[in-house]
């Protein structure tokens, strides 16, 4: 199939950037979206033009490196997948596709479609852990009993891949779904309860410092989240924060 692509091009962080139009032809419907961009880039290199820079790595939907706002949706129109899992059969011959970087003050553009998501790193560093040293002398793994339901719920929260689709899609650029997934995972496990109060306060404090917006519960994030992290996590975060604040 033949497609028209409108892609955000921006030389570096200081550049203003603009949308540039490209034509690609001979695209197979079996290609992944990123393979389609590979075809474009190969073509650009052959024409001595600068290829489009975009983030990607595992190309199987788990590393969280790929991003892209495709036709106004994070990771494109399909659901429960990342951009690398989006296939061209989702589009039709002759379509025009808009490709933009994830937008947020806390995710500044580095180049073209690549954004800086280290704000997520700093939030995790503020409290996204359990303070236990590696010793090999912690109690036996079966010494802590955890109900299957809690364990499964903690696992559901823990599947977050940190891609930033929630921020990109939220009209307020809020990072609440991301933060709440981590807070929830630990809040649901007995090992994580000990530091629960400090954790939630520190992580939210850092989130605010990074310049993310406020959650207004629109629910857009859970729709676009490639791992289906639900809004229940945000409610749990709010609960944890209230508990931590009243004490």
């Amino acid at each position: 199939m033949n497609l028209t692509l409108l892609i955000w091009r921006q030389k570096d962080a200081r550049d203003k950037g603009k949308m540039v139009k490209y034509q690609v032809s001979g695209i197979s419907e079996h290609m992944s979206f990123l393979e389609m961009l590979d075809v474009l880039n190969e073509d650009l290199v052959n024409k001595n033009e600068e290829p489009v820079a975009f983030d990607h790595d595992c190309r199987e939907g788990i590393c969280g490196m790929c991003s892209l706002q495709i036709n106004g949706e994070a990771h494109g129109p399909d659901r429960r997948i990342t951009t690398c899992q989006l296939h061209m059969r989702t589009f039709k011959d002759g379509d025009t596709i808009y490709i933009e970087p994830f937008r947020s003050k806390a995710f500044p553009v580095i180049k073209d479609l690549i954004v800086d998501r280290t704000s997520f790193e700093r939030i995790q560093q503020a409290g996204g852990f359990i303070s236990v040293n590696t010793s090999g002398n912690t109690q036996d793994a079966n010494g802590i009993l955890i109900g299957k339901e809690e364990a499964d719920m903690a696992m559901d929260s823990a599947t977050c891949i940190g891609c930033g689709a929630c921020v990109a899609t939220c009209k307020n650029s809020s990072a609440m779904l991301f933060v709440s997934a981590k807070v929830s995972q630990y809040a649901l496990l007995p090992q994580g309860r000990i530091e629960a109060k400090d954790r939630v306060k520190n992580m939210i404090h850092q989130m605010d410092l990074e310049g993310f917006g406020n959650c207004t519960n629109t629910g857009a994030c859970e729709v676009e989240c490639p791992k289906g992290i639900s809004l229940e996590n945000i409610a749990r975060l709010n609960r944890e924060f209230l508990k931590a604040s009243v004490k």
Binding site: V132, T138, Q139, N142, A151, L189
Partner: peptide, 20 residues
């Protein structure tokens, strides 16, 4: 390794009795 990971909050699968 398993002891360490559980202490860190890795949500391994569990059975209905709460054991790994």
């Amino acid at each position: 390794i398993i002891d360490q990971c559980v202490a860190q909050g890795v949500p391994f699968a569990r059975d209905y009795g709460g054991l790994l």
